[in-house]
Each structure stands twice: as structure tokens, then as C-alpha cells.
């Protein structure tokens, strides 16, 4: 119950932040990605502003073993290395982000006021997420095979 309450609170803060910062406005997001057009730098402030409290939180996390509700904390320094899935997946995600100006957070936050277009995007995104796991495994197998050659 407590976990769900704080998850709801975190989701709510995230949503309000996305709303205030203009991340739910697809023209603003596309303006940020359009470096060679009428470039809009607002997103740099959003990302910078978001990284700041999180960088402090990671410092705090490094000194504790468990989170407030008792779960083990993720490591403050990630040991994992980038792989083929990170690169391929991120390029595909970026392409979709540029095409419509929506990423997963704002797409969900605007579910009730984004009209039919926003709902269609959510359905397509969920379908993409549903078919992704076997593709991810294939890429993983292929890239380890390539490394062994």
C-alpha cells in the first residue's frame, strides 16, 4: 500500500513536471530536435533541471544499502556496458520521438487530453513494446556471435 502510494506520488510529480516544462507539446520537442531549423533549447533546461536532484539522490543512495521502504537500492554506479541493443534501440526510439514529438512519459501524461492522435500513439507504442522482447533476444544472440568470430 505504501509502495503504491509513493509510486502514485512520484508518477504525479513526474506528470506535473512534464506539463510545466512543455514536454507534452510535440512542437516544442520537435523544435529541440530540429537543430538545423528554428532550434528551441528549452529541453536542455528540462534535462539539466531533472539531472540535478537525481545526481544528489544517487549520492544519497550510495551511502545507504536499502531504500526507505526496505528494498535494495540500485547501484549508484552502473557496471553494465553499452551493447548493440542500446545503440539500435535508441536510434529507433529517437526516430519515433522525432517523427511525432512524443516519448513514453509525455505520451502517458497527455493520455486524457491528447485527442485521438495521442491515443493512437499510445496503442502503437504499446504494440511496439509487446513485440520487442524476441527482437531484443535475437539482436543479443547475433551480436555475441559476431564477437566470437
Amino acid at each position: 500500500m505504501k509502495r503504491s502510494f509513493f509510486a502514485f506520488l512520484s508518477g504525479a510529480m513526474f506528470g506535473v513536471g512534464l506539463l510545466i516544462s512543455g514536454m507534452v507539446d510535440t512542437t516544442k520537442v520537435q523544435g529541440w530536435l530540429d537543430v538545423f531549423g528554428n532550434w528551441d533549447p528549452t529541453l536542455a533546461f528540462v534535462l539539466g533541471g531533472a539531472i540535478l536532484p537525481m545526481a544528489i539522490a544517487w549520492r544519497v543512495a550510495a551511502r545507504r544499502r536499502v531504500a526507505v521502504l526496505g528494498d535494495p537500492l540500485p547501484m549508484a554506479s552502473s557496471p553494465a556496458h553499452p551493447d548493440a541493443n542500446i545503440v539500435i534501440g535508441s536510434v529507433l526510439f529517437g526516430m519515433g520521438w522525432g517523427l511525432a514529438g512524443l516519448c513514453p512519459g509525455p505520451a502517458m501524461a497527455s493520455a486524457t487530453f491528447g485527442g485521438w492522435g495521442g491515443l493512437l500513439f499510445l496503442v502503437a507504442m504499446a504494440a511496439g513494446m509487446y513485440v520487442a522482447p524476441p527482437i531484443r533476444r535475437k539482436i543479443e544472440i547475433r551480436s555475441t556471435q559476431l564477437k566470437e568470430i
Binding site: 510529480m13 513536471g17 516544462s21 539539466g48 540535478l52 528494498d71
Partner: peptide, 20 residues
């Protein structure tokens, strides 16, 4: 953008430190 960003980061900090 900055104010919204700070709120987004605070949401992430809460989710990390409270829920892990």
C-alpha cells in the same frame, strides 16, 4: 523548462530513495 525539470528529477529521486 527548468522548474518542470527540477520536478521531474525530484519525482525520480523520490522513486529511487523511497521505493528503490
Amino acid at each position: 523548462g527548468l522548474v518542470g525539470g527540477l520536478l521531474i528529477g525530484s519525482a525520480a529521486a523520490l522513486f529511487l530513495l523511497v521505493n528503490g
